[in-house]
Design a protein around this nucleic acid. Structure first.
Length: 318
DNA sequence: AACGCGCCCAACCGCACATAC
DNA sequence: TGTATGTGCGGTTGGGCGCGT
């Protein structure tokens, strides 16, 4: 199943910014069809547009659709995006289904230009949603000095990332297991067969987590949001801290006096929740280097169910 | 006023999946 | 069942714009 030929490659098909006339022609044509597009590929000719169907679809879904909400994102929307991203990763289209009138493209852009920077300023890794190690915290708006590799694990020890996966507890932690597994699998992507098999199992685990009534995506909450009254307020405070002379001070954590601290959700002394193994963030980077040197192995796939109790011998390989 | 720089976001690109035949 | 076609999706690009010098 190869890539399909796209009319975009035809010579003479217009690219670039849309004109008002083109917008009008597209909207009027779709209105005539009752708001329903049967075939995007045949639409440009029918609408009298010298555009590729893909370009028309994008223009409609991201800009011209009547139910699109424009304007700034609210604080509540920001928090929702962060929560959903923590649970789903870069699944922008899925995230967009939870925000009325927002497109995946808009959310993706907003994430990359605003939220990502806010999280970094707050000392949070926007990819893993874990606290950044101290030597990677922001200094004057940029990342600090390169991460020094941590000392190698003692001989015979369980690989730290696998240890982190294995030590995660109940069903509610399945999403966290999935996130760590994704990191693990991307690290061993040179071993494609094994990675594909594991990815299938990881996806299955994630699916199980999604459908579990005790662990819905909508309820998933990164730890740093648990007792923060305002995400924007948190970031503003952090910006003030960074702009002040004392950049060595720890990241700010605003607590709402009205809301009691949920100790099951957040570690009182840090942003890392108690259920997370210490040092998870730090090990992610060096494990990439570790796995990049691995030779392809003839491995028997592990039983993921064994992660929570007795460890499958597979996990002790590293 | 002119220039350089960085940010933002609409649009594009290419891959993967779904469906039709 | 295999192939062709259509569509969805996530990553990337580049032009416009504002701001500082």
């Amino acid at each position: 199943m190869g890539r399909s030929p796209c009319c975009c490659h035809d010579a003479g098909v217009k690219k670039g910014p849309w004109t008002e006339e083109e917008d009008r022609a597209l909207v009027e044509h779709i209105k005539k069809q009752g708001g329903h597009v049967g075939s995007w590929r045949s639409l440009p000719r029918a609408a009298g547009l010298n555009r590729c169907g893909k370009s028309c679809r994008l223009r409609w879904t991201n800009y011209l659709r009547p139910d699109i909400k424009r304007g700034n994102f609210s604080d509540e929307e920001e928090r929702l995006i962060v929560r959903l991203h923590a649970a789903l990763g870069n699944k922008w289209s899925t995230i967009a289904t939870h925000l009325d009138g927002r497109t995946d493209n808009e959310i993706k852009n907003y994430w990359n230009t605003h939220i990502k920077k806010k999280l970094l300023r707050m000392g949070i890794d926007p990819v893993t949603h874990q606290r950044l190690p101290p030597d990677l915290l922001l200094v004057d708006g940029g990342l600090a000095s390169p991460l020094l590799p941590p000392p190698p694990p003692p001989p015979g020890a369980l690989h730290p990332l696998l240890s982190a996966v294995a030590s995660l507890g109940s069903l509610d932690s399945t999403l966290r297991q999935f996130q760590l597994l994704q990191q693990l699998l991307s690290a061993i992507n040179s071993n494609n067969d094994v990675a594909a098999g594991l990815m299938g199992m990881a996806n299955l685990a994630a699916t199980n987590a999604m459908v579990s009534p005790t662990s819905t995506v909508a309820n998933h909450q990164p730890s740093y949001l648990c007792d923060v009254p305002s995400f924007s307020g948190q970031d503003m405070a952090e910006q003030q801290r960074l702009s002040s002379s004392d950049t060595t001070a720890p990241p700010v954590l605003i607590r709402s006096s009205a809301e009691p601290v949920d100790h099951q959700c957040c570690n009182d002394a840090a942003l890392v929740p108690e259920t997370y193994p210490q040092g998870v963030t730090a090990i992610v980077d060096w494990q990439m280097q570790e796995f990049s040197n691995l030779e392809p192995l003839d491995l028997e796939l592990p039983n993921l169910c064994s992660l929570e109790s007795d460890l499958d011998p597979f996990w002790r390989t590293y």
